[in-house]
């Protein structure tokens, strides 16, 4: 395999990645010796207890944090170059829609900043609203919508400018389980249609197993990877796949990985 072809299929590549925060209570090892490669089109989940560095790792990919050691490439570039090239859309824990803009105008926000023409903006808003099942809500203000709808709008906002990568930081963490199941299903459908590479942070084992092709199990103090699981589940996943033995086996392995990480503490 030549170096060149590797770069084309490999979306994230982290080697010996370290990140230490200096705080008043001394240094905190948020990430220690993290090694990971993610290929194009994968759906990769990061799971672990709080403080394990899963969000921090996602923020490193997005160039919102700067690693203190090791190397990290995104699409073959440094994270900061990737950010400047608008290589990814980012979905936060909360929808974070601007209350002074309508849903349509919120989705236009990145398009305005990136200098799309007005006609193009309208066209894209229409198509992503359809993608997240929010047709007809473009003229509403965020505070007139339910939490689940707001989060869908924020996903639409991240999809609007057609980046190859979608980074999602516990996007459904604040929603109730019924809404969450529904959105998980929709997210899988969307992933299948758009063929994006998705990085997804969660602390729910069923969610991680249901969604991912690759599950990265992490543990805290210092934040590190304890297991990387390539899911044997098929790409086509109805909700009741969660009752199959394969699903339960993967979930079991994730739980074992989490427990192993904790055992280190004692």
């Amino acid at each position: 395999m030549t170096n060149n072809s590797r770069q084309q299929t490999c979306i994230f590549e982290a080697a010996h990645l370290d990140l230490t925060f200096q705080t008043n209570d001394g240094p905190i090892h948020a990430l220690k010796d993290v090694n990971l490669t993610v290929d194009k089109g994968e759906f990769v989940s990061f799971i672990g207890p709080s403080g394990c560095g899963k969000t921090t790792f996602l923020r490193c990919i997005a160039a919102l944090e700067t690693p203190t050691g090791g190397t990290l490439t995104v699409n073959g570039m440094t994270p900061d170059e990737a950010r400047r090239n608008r290589a990814y859309g980012y979905v936060f824990q909360a929808a974070g829609l601007y209350p002074w803009r309508t849903i349509a105008k919120n989705i236009k926000l990145p398009l305005e900043i990136m200098g799309y023409s007005t006609a193009e903006q309208d066209e894209r808003v229409r198509s992503v609203l359809e993608l997240v099942d929010l047709e007809g809500f473009g003229g509403k203000f965020p505070w007139q919508l339910s939490g689940g709808m707001q989060q869908r709008a924020s996903i639409a906002r991240a999809l609007a400018f057609d980046a190859d990568i979608l980074l999602m930081d516990e996007p459904f963490g604040a929603l109730d389980e019924i809404v969450r199941d529904h959105l998980n299903e929709q997210l899988l459908a969307l992933w299948a249609r758009t063929e994006k590479t998705i990085g997804f942070v969660t602390h729910s084992i069923p969610e991680a197993v249901y969604l991912s092709t690759k599950i990265v199990v992490m543990s805290p103090r210092p934040g590190r990877i304890t297991d990387v699981i390539d899911s044997p589940l098929p790409k086509e996943r109805p909700l009741d796949i969660r009752d199959t033995p394969e699903f339960i086996e993967v979930a079991h392995r994730v739980r074992e990985g989490l427990r192993a990480g904790h055992a280190d503490d004692e």
Binding site: A62, A63, L64, R83, R84, R86, Y88, G89, Y90, F92, Q93, A94, G96, Y98, L109, P110, I113, M114
Partner: peptide, 14 residues
């Protein structure tokens, strides 16, 4: 503006 909203603008390289 919250840290999250600022980060969002950062991800757009605004």
């Amino acid at each position: 503006a919250t840290a999250m909203q600022r980060d969002l603008m950062e991800t757009y390289a605004a």
